[in-house]
């Protein structure tokens, strides 16, 4: 093994620790009497039992899943339409559209959050889960559209022409040939959209009303009532178990579509 390889492995190990150690500590401390070291009365399920007295925490995870699911569904449909149009047609104003599409991708969430919420409040719309979904669709559309555009481009156009040649109209061609073949791309786009929505706190913090998504709930409890941190550590395990499931699902789909 060369000197440079050893150096690489050391750096990589350090970065892996930087990435995973905090999460491991979080899980560890969720089983501890306090959320600081040293360990006391370890392991204890005390905070998990306490968590049951915080239905808002459980609900937050539920809301998160709900928001992410609806967002994903909508963003994927927008993405399929937009991706198909970008890859396969020459619609009027294509250049303008691509420019427009990139805007939400390169704008800090705080700008979108503040703009959207101040605008909606002026219009008499109050923050709510629906508003979060509206915002999340905005930030996920560019990703789903771009992912699907590249998948549509990669799809051999003569397959679609072959379907038409065999008598299928535009819609039948899409349903019977294009869509089934683009399905792995749809799955990748869906998971990407789900993660973005599931992850988001900066935008949702502006848009959330009394029903908060999990990240917003953690953020606001941490800011307002820091003494409840142990509850949050217990809540984290729930989120993490979803996360691990999701991660494996993503990996599997990537494998299949590769």
């Amino acid at each position: 093994m060369t000197k440079s390889s050893i150096m690489f492995i050391v750096v990589l190990g350090f970065l892996l620790i930087l990435t995973f150690f905090p999460i491991a500590i979080l899980l560890l401390l969720s089983l501890n009497e306090t959320s600081t070291l040293p360990l006391r009365n370890f392991p204890t399920l005390k905070w998990y039992i306490e968590l049951l007295r915080f239905p808002a925490a459980i609900n937050a995870v539920k809301y998160s899943l709900m928001v992410a699911s609806v967002t994903t569904g909508a963003a994927v449909i927008f993405g399929i339409c937009g991706g198909y149009a970008l890859a396969r047609t020459n619609f009027a104003g294509k250049k303008i559209f691509t420019g427009l599409l990139l805007m939400p991708m390169v704008t800090p969430y705080i700008i979108m959050g503040f703009s959207l919420m101040s605008f909606l409040l002026k219009m008499g719309v109050n923050p709510s889960l629906i508003v979060i979904i509206i915002g999340h669709i905005l930030i996920t559309i560019p990703y789903t559209t771009l992912v699907l555009t590249s998948r549509f481009i990669a799809l051999d156009i003569s397959l679609e022409e072959a379907a038409m040649d065999l008598g299928a109209g535009k819609f039948t061609t899409f349903r019977k040939v294009t869509l089934p073949l683009i399905m792995p791309g749809v799955a990748v786009a869906a998971i990407l959209a789900f993660i973005i929505s599931w992850e988001d706190v900066a935008l949702a913090v502006f848009l959330a009303g009394t029903e908060q998504t999990a990240p917003v709930y953690i953020y606001s409890l941490l800011m307002k009532l820091p003494k409840f941190v142990p509850i949050l550590t217990a809540m984290s395990s729930i989120i993490l178990s979803f996360a691990i499931g999701l991660a494996f699902l993503m990996r599997m789909i990537e494998r299949i579509s590769a």
Binding site: D156, S158, L159, E161, A162, D165, L166, V177
Partner: peptide, 10 residues
């Protein structure tokens, strides 16, 4: 009906 250069079998 066309037999494509790339065959284009589904």
């Amino acid at each position: 009906n066309l037999v494509f250069q790339s065959l284009a079998l589904f």
